[in-house]
Computed example of a mutant assay.
Amino acid sequence: MSELDSRWTAKKRRMSEKVRNMFYHAYDNYMTYAFLHDELKPLTKTYTDSLVELGNLKLERFPQEYNGSALTLVESLSSLVIMGNNTEFERAVLWLSENLTFDVDARINLFECDIRVLGGLVSANILATDSTNRLVRGNYKNQLLSLADDLGRRFLPAFDTPTGLPYAWINLKYGVMENETTETSTSGCGSLILEMGALSRLTGDPSFESAALRALLKLWSMRSSLNLLGTTLDVETGDWIEYSFGIGAGVDSFYEYLIKAHFLFGRDEFWRMFQPAYFAVQKYFRHGSWYHEADMRTGQATYWQLTSLQAFWPGLQVLVGDITAANSSHSEFFSVWEKFGVLPERYLLDLQMLHPT
């Protein structure tokens, strides 16, 4: 091994150990101070039940009997496997199998619950049943898949709209509530296909994938002649509410899920949507190495800002093989990170300064 290879190997080992320590710092403190609740508040060593608090900051519809869904534990399952901690993974899987329930009077955000809870359960089930026998034989009998199936069925009433586009909010026990808002985001109705598609493949029930795919195809049919979409829309009428569009909040995962669905399910229709959508971003949003927002109808720039949720973009570009563009994008994101020591929520590209809010 050359000296250069030795230094690189040593650096990877140090970085790996640093990541491991960061993970266990977060995980162990959650388990100590916040479990069974959803998330840890690290400064006060208390908790938040964020699954029902998200978008409900005034706690107007907060169920008094809700004590959390161990959300952080669900989200940590695959990381435990990556860390090689099969003992803790097994303990967590068996605890969730015996204690987690979704029969609760809780109004939740469909998108967040899908990507975090349903996704966590589906992926953990796959890991728990793979050929390496990470769980003691006989202890696991697809309980997490049963929970995922139950959760998926509680999602389905949200898709019962004239357009097939799902409501952003649904009550896990009672379905869509009276006078529920009909506004949702592009991400909210266009980023459900991975989890619900995988659930259909694992259970043999096509209803989950069919609902998510119908919503995605409807959303794509609403694109402009420039192959651009808006950010928010009405699920009952199918009308756009916000025409400004970018690659950040409210939109980001739409692109991510299209290309990953193509890889996961091997269906060309996802690529046929992703390719023109990606080219449109490069044509109308890109300014040098930066990406601003634009009006879906005209392609004219609207907001010249970088947002933290755009940070996935270089990774997506690597996935599709656009390495030169990925290097350029990543370099600009990293330059902002170095300037502030962290990637800010919003950074004004034209003024080269933090957004005042």
Rank of each mutant, 00 (worst) to 15 (best):
F35V: 08
R14S: 12
Y24R: 01
E178V: 11
W304V: 08
I241R: 00
S78R: 09
A128D: 02
A280R: 05
T357Q: 13
E53L: 14
F265I: 08
Q64L: 14
V104M: 09
S97L: 07
G68Y: 07
Y243D: 10
R297D: 11
Y303N: 11
R13V: 13
F155A: 04
A106V: 02
M273F: 10
E90T: 05
S210G: 07
Y47N: 03
F274D: 02
Y347K: 01
S328V: 07
A158W: 05
L343D: 01
S331D: 11
L228D: 00
S187V: 10
S50N: 14
R20Q: 11
V122L: 05
A277N: 07
N139S: 15
L151Y: 04
S335F: 01
M15P: 00
L165C: 01
L258W: 06
R153Y: 15
N21Q: 15
A261C: 14
D28N: 09
L145R: 00
S185C: 15
T181R: 13
Y66A: 07
E60R: 13
P42K: 03
T9N: 14
A311F: 11
L213Y: 09
K12V: 12
K141P: 00
T161L: 06
L348Y: 09
G341W: 03
E90H: 07
A294Q: 04
W95K: 04
Y174F: 15
T32I: 13
E195M: 08
L202P: 03
V74Y: 04
T87D: 15
M22E: 15
K58F: 13
L319D: 10
T184C: 07
A215R: 03
Y24S: 00
P206M: 09
R154M: 02
G84V: 09
P206H: 08
Y174G: 03
M353V: 10
F89E: 01
D150C: 08
V104S: 07
L192F: 11
P162G: 01
V176L: 04
E60Y: 10
G230T: 03
E178A: 13
L192S: 02
Q275I: 12
K141E: 15
S207W: 07
D5A: 15
D105F: 09
L319T: 12
G321F: 10
Q64T: 14
T101V: 13
E75G: 08
D268R: 10
L258N: 00
F159Y: 13
T186A: 09
H355E: 10
R116T: 06
H287P: 00
F340M: 02
V93Y: 06
N142A: 14
L226R: 03
S6M: 12
S221W: 13
L226G: 04
I193G: 02
